[in-house]
Write a protein that binds this DNA or RNA. Structure first.
Length: 277
DNA sequence: GCCACTGTTAGCAT
DNA sequence: CATGCTAACAGTGG
């Protein structure tokens, strides 16, 4: 469930339930899922209390007292959910946290293992290379800030939207949905964009992400994530996974192409390349 | 069985 | 630096 709206939804949920809980144990079942250079024994988490749950881009940060933060990235198939300890762990559950006076444990499960977790000092998070290089939050950007990001760039529009160093949090679904609503072709070189195009893009980005958060994100392939969050934004998708469907605006057939190895959906008429170059 | 997919991104080549 | 391709993984569906 890993784009900004899904991560935001999970963070809100976790924040509500985790804040104030005291950890009695942490167990790692798959050492490769922990990205730390010096893998920390999660047993040392015992006794610390959860202060806050935050998001930065697609990353989830769980702050404990004692200057400790647990970082999670869900990759493609990561799940973070509560479960009764009586439900047996399957082979894809890689990390479990247990709490004092709380009947449920928090489990991190990830079938494809593109996700990861890491332990960091809370006050050092933003000194970390990973975070230093992360682009700005799309919902915390003014239009002038947004414009300045494009200066001197010439990559194709969708590639840039997907680049987490450019803007943090947008993935394959929301890139396509944003471009459809901005009426811009994914293959456009951003050097061709004028201020009014960027205005459309900025508005579409904010609208799509806000709407998606309001609907608790998109739940695709429910067998993977219904456990954690049944979102409803998928019913508002206009192009993603809609190859050959009629465009909701002009009734042309939605096209699918491959871009950077990812499926890319768009309306060939509403998002016409030739209208710009 | 084989091949093409899949909500990601680090690391490498150009 | 900027950009784009590939591999890492496991599962599903044709």
């Amino acid at each position: 469930m890993p784009e900004l709206p899904e991560v935001e939804t999970i963070v809100k949920f976790l924040s509500k339930h985790l804040t104030g809980l005291r950890i009695i144990s942490g167990k790692l079942f798959c050492s490769q899922i922990c990205k730390d250079k010096k893998p920390l024994d999660p047993g040392i988490l015992k006794g610390f209390q959860i202060r806050d749950v935050r998001r930065r881009g697609k990353v989830i940060l769980i702050d404990l007292d004692g200057n400790i933060t647990i970082l999670f990235h869900l990759g493609m198939t990561g799940q973070l959910f509560f479960s009764s300890p009586r439900v047996s762990l399957d082979r894809h559950t890689h990390f479990v946290l247990k709490f004092a006076r709380y009947p449920q444990e928090l489990r991190f499960r990830d079938v494809r293992r593109f996700g990861y977790l890491a332990f960091m000092r809370t006050d050092e998070i933003f000194l970390n290379q990973r975070f230093k290089r992360l682009g700005p939050e799309p919902l915390e950007m003014t239009f002038p800030m947004f414009i300045s990001l494009f200066k001197g760039r010439r990559a194709r529009l969708k590639s840039l939207l997907l680049d987490q160093h450019f803007i943090a949090g947008i993935g394959n679904i929301y890139a396509d949905e944003i471009l459809f609503r901005a009426k811009l072709h994914p293959l456009l070189s951003v050097s061709l964009l004028e201020t009014f195009h960027l205005k459309r893009l900025w508005r579409a980005m904010r609208d799509v992400l806000r709407q998606a958060i309001k609907h608790k994100g998109s739940t695709i392939r429910t067998y993977i994530n219904a456990k954690t969050h049944p979102g409803e934004f998928q019913s508002f998708h206009r192009v993603y996974a809609k190859e050959a469907h009629p465009c909701s605006v002009c009734h042309s057939q939605i096209k699918r192409i491959k871009m950077n190895g990812r499926s890319t959906y768009f309306c060939p008429k509403c998002q016409d390349l030739r209208s710009i170059c």
